[in-house]
Write a protein that binds this DNA or RNA. Structure first.
Lengths: 174, 174
DNA sequence: TCTCTTTGGTCTGTTGATCGAACCAGAAGG
DNA sequence: CCTTCTGGTTCGATCAACAGACCAAAGAGA
């Protein structure tokens, strides 16, 4: 763990979490993984992040056991079950940030889809407003919400994400 | 917002959240607020943080509307409703970090207490395992868990937190 | 197979954030 | 009024982030 990123004398689960996902960019990289981003160049195009920092973060996430690197050479990065467990936290942060800065107009919405058919919208507590269950990421579809700003960026990842997309499914960017 | 702390071209609620609570120490300061810490010197004693950074973080949280500064001079800092809304995220992070690094032995446990009487333990989803509801922080009591390390630190805040304590109630440290 | 382009990085100099320690003004207590 | 404590500010040193140049290996095409 690099200097300045850990909290060695905090006996607390939050501190342990932040040592893994608390650095700048790390949670946005994981968000992109949930949205289906897999490749170095796609992370780079979608986040305005320097290559050196992206390299360091991906390595840290792999060695923390949150990502696995698949294939030699031009690899792809995939979420491990431990990382998928973080979904409620990421969803909670997205909801809280939207409520705080864009009330009533979320930038992105998440929907429970069963076996093909849509069930309902996900509420602030991560539960489906129709059936009341808390669906797994693999049963969630995401779409741009009413607060989205389509003029903000125009990279291949952002373009692909303007269509509805199921979480964890690889994005097709070309 | 200081340079290097925001994500201006990310059209996403998570990015908006991280601009407010994503800096080093910020979430641990808010955690301490939920645990009842109110005063500058108590934050300083409980977190190993430099005074300059603590001053900057408290100011940023006040101007973001997450803390209010009560009283001139030797003030105390209190959570606003917007900050209390963050509780599910903090609880999720605590659970995830404990599961990842200390499985089966959480460092701190949270319990639903109704009107005086205890109802049940809070599970990973923030719901009471006895009654199934998601209690507000004011109806939650916290205690050190089986994974706690009582030898790690010995400041007044840590000592006060070795006894059961209701969230948001001011801690008595002397 | 050979060449060309793309991908997935590394390296470098500069800028910004964090740190520990010393210092200090105003509040609280006597 | 005097003393102590609290809640900071200031300073120099160290550490991390950034933009941009550079580069080796993988993949695509002829």
């Amino acid at each position: 763990m690099a200097l300045g990123t850990d909290y060695p004398r905090q006996d607390c689960g939050i501190a342990r979490s932040l040592e893994v996902v608390g650095e700048r960019w790390t949670l946005l990289i994981l968000r992109d993984c949930f949205l289906g981003v897999r490749r170095f160049s796609d992370f780079e195009a979608h986040l305005d992040i320097s290559k050196a920092v992206l390299t360091a973060r991906l390595e840290a996430l792999v060695s923390a056991g949150l990502l696995t690197r698949v294939g030699r050479g031009h690899a792809s990065y995939e979420l491990t079950p431990e990382a998928i467990d973080l979904w409620p936290v990421l969803h909670g942060l997205a909801q809280w940030g939207d409520r705080l800065t864009s009330p009533g107009r979320p930038r992105r919405t998440f929907h429970h889809v069963g076996h093909g058919a849509e069930c309902g919208l996900l509420g602030g507590d991560g539960r489906c407003t129709a059936c009341g269950t808390a669906p797994l990421p693999s049963d969630i579809e995401t779409r741009p919400g009413p607060g989205a700003d389509p003029t903000l960026r125009d990279d291949p990842v952002s373009r692909a994400l303007r269509a509805p997309h199921r979480l964890l499914e690889p994005l097709v960017t070309r």
